[in-house]
Design a protein around this nucleic acid. Sequence first.
DNA 1: GCCAACGTTGGC
DNA 2: GCCAACGTTGGC
Length: 154
Amino acid sequence: MKYWLLKTEPSTFSIEDLEQAPQRTTSWDGVRNFQARNMLRDGMRAGDRAFLYHSSCKVPGIVGIVGIVSAGYPDRSAFDPKDPHFDPAGDPRTPRWYAVDVRLERRTKRVITLEDLRRHARLALDGLVLLRTGNRLSVMPLTAAHWHFILSLE
DNA sequence: GCCAACGTTGGC
DNA sequence: GCCAACGTTGGC
């Protein structure tokens, strides 16, 4: 089983939206970055778990835990001209973008803020991709050690 | 709103 | 293959 972190802007899609989704499950689509795509397509498997992270908001941080319920599959939003993430260069025969399905497991007991995480950047969370300067990945892997340490901050 | 950092594009 | 220009991300 692997551990991940998924970023989302709550003004676009928040943990409240996920709570209200049928089965508390949604397609994690619209990712348009090759490095992140590779992780969705090649790295994630059903049974993996991920932190849900709110970015570009008042208090950026981890707000919940989701389970990956399906491995990567071609992201159909890339082929929909009306979708904001439409990719005009896309060809359904050779899908370029991928999505996974995620189900909300639970909210964290409190928001584990970016500030909280930074406090441990030099020791327990050394190497955490999220804390790398200029990091822009919306999908990133976590070590088991980082996962458990972050949970201990709850 | 600002700006640093990054990814992508396209000319050469 | 290089790299400048551009667009985007995301914290502040």
